[in-house]
Simulated assay, not measured.
Amino acid sequence: MADLKYYDIILKPLVTEKSMMAMEEKKYTFSVHPDATKSQVKEAVEKLFEGTKVAKVNTMNLDGKTRRRGRTAGKTAKTKKAIVQLTEDSKEIEIFEGL
């Protein structure tokens, strides 16, 4: 397992229709490092975004898709996605405001 710092864990926010609907319930979706654990994701969100308190974290591993280039077949990289539920008294995450 890699030695991950909190700023290496969250790669980018995922903005889809489904994730935008979940934001009303204070659920935020992020693409995270494939080796990150739930406790590491919780720590990273609380350190990166001031005033946030994480209630729970759901993670899912996504396999790479098969892609073809002519006769050669390959796979894209595996990814990991995390859905972070904030507590009721927690602040909103700033990067999602105004979307």
Rank of each mutant, 00 (worst) to 15 (best):
G64E: 12
R68S: 14
P13N: 11
N61W: 05
S90A: 12
S19Q: 07
L48G: 05
L14M: 11
D3H: 03
K26V: 02
V54W: 00
K38Y: 02
K27Y: 00
K42F: 01
E43F: 05
M23G: 04
K53D: 13
Q85A: 10
E25D: 09
V15S: 03
T72L: 14
K5R: 11
T76V: 12
K80A: 07
E46W: 04
S31Y: 01
V84S: 07
E25N: 09
E17F: 00
K53H: 09
E94N: 12
E46Y: 04
S39W: 00
T59C: 07
R67T: 12
A73R: 15
A77R: 15
K26D: 02
K78S: 13
E17Q: 05
K42G: 06
I9N: 01
R68T: 11
K78P: 13
D89M: 04
G51Y: 12
K91R: 15
A36P: 02
R67E: 12
A55D: 09
A77G: 14
A36V: 02
L11Q: 12
M23T: 08
S39D: 01
Q40W: 00
A44C: 10
E50S: 15
K53E: 13
A82V: 03
Y28N: 05
N58K: 11
E94M: 10
T76Q: 12
A55F: 06
K91S: 14
A44M: 08
H33P: 03
G74R: 14
L11F: 03
K42Q: 08
A77T: 15
D35F: 00
L48I: 13
I93Q: 09
V57Y: 07
Y28K: 06
A44H: 02
T79G: 13
I9Q: 03
T37Q: 01
H33N: 05
G64M: 10
R71K: 15
